[in-house]
Every structure is written in C-alpha cells, then in structure tokens.
Design a binder for these strands. Structure first.
Lengths: 140, 140, 140, 140
DNA sequence: GTGGTCTAGACCACA
DNA sequence: GTGGTCTAGACCACG
C-alpha cells in the first residue's frame, strides 16, 4: 500500500505506476482481473474517484480493459506494454538525475559513483553486483 | 533555460535545483551576486513571484544570502553545500528509478543497462561522455 | 452480433434496435416467435437481464407480445411499426450528424460528401451498393 | 448553452464536441484563449469538474493546451485537428445510421431519401440544395 | 484569477 | 456486485 499523499506526484499516478509495475512483474497476467476500483480504494485509504482516474489512465495506455459490471482486466499485450512503460519511467528518472548531475558539473565517474551508491544503499563501493534490500524511499 | 511547466515538480523547485547546480558548478562563486529576480524571471519566462519563492528556498537552505537593496549573493560555504545538495538530488532520482525498476521485477543488470542507456543517449557504447539531454517526459 | 459494449447507447437499446431491424427486414414476421431470452443472451454474449430489458422495451413499443410459457412473438402490425421505428432511428442519427457538421460550420455540400463517403466506405463512387460496415468508433 | 443532462452521451463529451465544433468553425483560433473552466462551468450550469474533464480530453486530443494560472488555449494546429475530429464524428453518425437502415433492409435510395429529409426538415424533396434552419434536436 | 487534485457522497447502467 | 458520471466543496500551486 505505497501511496504517499504528500508527494509531488499525484496519487492517481502513483497508483498507475504501482499497477504498471505489478503487471510488468507478472503479478497480474493478461486476462486476469485487477482489484475492483472500490476495493482498491478501501485498501489504499483513498477515494474511489482517485482509483477510477488511475484505471482510466491505465486503460488509455492500453494496459487494462474495463468491462462494466465485471471489473478491470489486464489487456492482452498488457504485460509487455507495462514492461515498456516501466522501462521508460526508470530511464526518465535516470536521465533526469544525470542531467541534474551534469548541470552541477559532476564528472561521468562521479555520477556513476552516485548511481552505485543508490544501487547498494548500505554496503561499500567495492562490494559485488548484488544489492541488499533498498530502504523504502518517500519523497515530498 | 531548463524549466518545464507540466512537470510534477513545481517550477520554483526546478529553479532551486538549477541555481544550486550553477553554484555547485562554480558558475557563481561564494560572495558573487546572483541574477536579479526580475531578470531571471524574464530569462526563464516565468513569473517573478516564482523566482522569488525559489530564492526564498535557497536562502532557507543557507545557500544564498539576500542583502536589502543589493540583491542575492552566494553564501560563504555555498559552493560545498550546493555540491552536497546536488548530490542528494541526483541520488534521490537514481534511487527512485531503481525502486521503480525493482517494483517491475527488473534484474540488477537490466537496471544497469537502462542506466547506461541514459548515460549515452543515442550512440554506441564506445563513445563516452556526450551529454545531450535525452528526451523523455512523463507528465501532462 | 452487433452489440458494442463501450458505446454510449446502452446495450439493451442496441438490442432493441437490432430486433426492430430484423422485424422491419421481415426476418421475423408477425405472429412468428422471437429467439428466447436465454438463447439470444448466449448469442450476443450478454447478460440475460439485458435481453430481458430489451424485450420489455419492445413490448412497451407494441412491437412484440409475450405469452407466458411460450415466449415472445412479433405483434400483428409489428412489421410496419418496426419499419417506422427504424426509419426514425436512422433519421435521428442523420439529423444528429448534420447538426454536428453544421456546428462545425461545414457547408451543405461538405456534409453531403461525408455522407457519400459513409455510403461507400472505401471504393470509388462508380460502384454503388457495397455495404461492408465502415469502422468508426467514437467512445472508450 | 447546449448541454442536455438527460442524454446518453456524457456531459463532458457534449462539451468536448461543442468546443471542437467551435474551434473547427474558427470561432476560437489557434493561440486564442478559451473560456476558463470555472467560467464555462457557470455558463453551462455544470460542475467545474465536468468542464475540467472535457478540457482534459481536448488536451489529450491535441486540440488545446492548458497553462497553469493562465488558462486554456487553442493549440497551434488545433483548428485543423478539430476539423478532422468533427468530420469523423459526423461520419460516424452517418455510418451508424446507414448500418441501422441496412439492417432493416432499407434500399440505398430509401436511405438517401431519409438523409435528404434530415437535411431539409420541413421542405419537400424537390427543393434545391439549400436548407432551411434545422430544428434544435435533443435526444435522450 | 487560473488549472490540478482530492474527498464525500450521490445516482445510473449493467451483470 | 461492477464501472461511469456528476455534484459540492475543499486545498494546492502558479500568476
């Protein structure tokens, strides 16, 4: 239940990204039913309208289809399009961070160092490629 | 002129990061005068109130000091604190991207691949260090 | 099987128009039995309640009569009243389209051009009377 | 002020079509400001949220752009895309009517007769190509 | 003043 | 029960 009402990113978009991640991860598979709007709203302690808007966006994205009286379902190629969507989202954040770093005249290697620190929140920089679990981040 | 209305991050915060980047990069050095609010507002095609708010934030952050009738100046240790600030901003974006990727069950190496793609927007991997900004916008 | 969920016009009304068309076309003649509610529901991949409601409407319209335990039958002057009904339905859509076009300040001839394009979906104007349905959906 | 709350087509979509028509007709030209959301809501005796949703759709269509604090404006190629949109809307209605007519086994010429009756609500069929003003239609 | 989001609660159409 | 729409009224960010 990862919604942060104090984030700059609207709640409905947090839900969009969350569900997109779940579909990309295969938690919900094509044809499978998603949580009902009202049900998810109860879970997230959020107004049904907000979830409704998130589902509307997901439908526009072609990730889900809704059928009146039945519920919402993952679309046929919903999984692959969710993966593409998640990749773009990740890439956008990375690109944004890189641009910020460059604007502050950080060197390429400095930026990569920071990235590695983000990959392995606790361990030293010499550690191998495996990451310990990342803390839950919450922006505002 | 790196302001993007239609971004989720408020314009005044974009300006804060922009100036912080310039100070971290040494474009403005401790003791040096910053652009006037009105002038910067014209440059960025932005309302002076918005720049005003950005300068407030920067002052709160201890990065700049305002002197009545003279304008705003970079604070004494402004450069180092700007560098620290920029680093955290970059790290925060990276961490956010990584978390998003993990939520979509991407592998560590997949995430690193995306990061490398963000580092080198178009060309092959043999040509490092070109830094044109990759287009990727995620909002509306 | 001409039901389109995702249309603004309710499914039961689509069914009403469908049946009215079949009666007007003489597929079902006065006195003849209509398909059973359950059977039609299976055909249209639709909830029996929905078909039930459509039959109610048709009965209200005087187009069909229901006889307990026997099913629904085309009423005595059902065919002519179906023809009148279909004509008004067609006329209503045309009038609506014309009004939309005029609101967009289309000329009379422009509107007639569009109508001809609708009459002959793909081919040139020399080949009349092919009646494949043109794809054009307007909802979500 | 042409909103009909009892129509099958949602109010926000009626507003979309109305504005699209106005833009297509050149009443609002590219770059020009549209009525504010709140103002239009007052005019139409409708909740601001409803107008908001209409404007959101129009923005998705690329017909308008919104700028926070400034208002909504017709997009650069908004006029041409509005014309295309209006044409599709008109064509969709005509195609729908034609399909309905054909389902009722009307002849091509019968359908054309009905269309001409819709074009000239009052006059006889022999009248020339000029139409008297069409009555305001309101469906439900 | 503008648009953007959210809540609370209502009614409808459909299954 | 589901989703779809609408209202009333609130707060925020921006100009």
């Amino acid at each position: 239940m990862p919604v942060d009402p104090n984030s700059h990113v609207p709640i409905y978009e947090q839900i969009v990204e969350h569900i997109r991640g779940l579909v990309a991860a295969g938690v919900y598979r094509p044809g499978e039913a998603l949580p009902s709007i009202r049900g998810l709203a109860l879970d997230l302690v959020v107004n049904p309208n907000t979830v409704q808007r998130a589902y509307q966006e997901l439908q526009r994205e072609g990730l889900i289809v809704k059928r009146k009286g039945l519920g919402a379902f993952v679309a046929q190629q919903g999984d692959t399009s969710a993966q593409r969507g998640s990749e773009s989202a990740v890439l956008a954040r990375f690109a944004d961070g890189i641009q910020t770093g460059r604007a502050a005249s950080m060197s390429q290697s400095h930026i990569m160092t920071i990235f590695n620190r983000a990959l392995r929140p606790v361990a030293g920089e010499s550690a191998p490629d495996q990451a310990t679990s990342p803390e839950e981040r919450e922006d505002s």
